[in-house]
């Protein structure tokens, strides 16, 4: 399916935003691990696919990046949610809930 990646890119962005919202500033590796954990390893993409998404979010102004030091004393680039990123997350969360609710209705048993 050709648009599979598009969907993946879209949801991936949402997951990144949500992760940063929950955990605060985090580096790419951390974000990738977090997504894996939450999905209980059912989503386990190549970590590399994360970086173009991070760049896109940064270009949109929803996240900001800064070099810092990791818990293991490694130099790492940390991403954090910006104010407009937080708003975007709220918007997208709302949209996501609406969409899933609508789609879910189609799969409810029909009672007549």
């Amino acid at each position: 399916m050709s648009n599979k990646t598009e969907i993946w890119q879209g949801t991936l962005a949402l997951m990144i935003l949500k992760t940063l919202d929950t955990l605060g500033p985090l580096h790419g590796y951390g974000i990738a691990r977090r997504i894996e954990q939450i999905s209980e390893d059912r989503l386990s993409p190549n970590y590399g696919t994360l970086y173009p998404s991070l760049l896109k979010l940064e270009q949109e102004g929803w996240i900001a990046a800064e070099w810092g030091v990791s818990e293991n004393n490694r130099k790492a680039k940390f991403y954090k949610l910006t104010r407009s990123g937080r708003k975007q997350l709220e918007r997208e969360t709302k949209e996501w809930n609406q969409t899933t609710a609508i789609v879910a209705r189609f799969f409810e048993p029909v009672e007549d």
Binding site: H27, Y51, S70, R74, A76, K77
Partner: peptide, 9 residues
């Protein structure tokens, strides 16, 4: 640099 730090971690 970023990818290198990712790998190291």
């Amino acid at each position: 640099d970023e990818l290198e730090s990712h790998l190291q971690m």
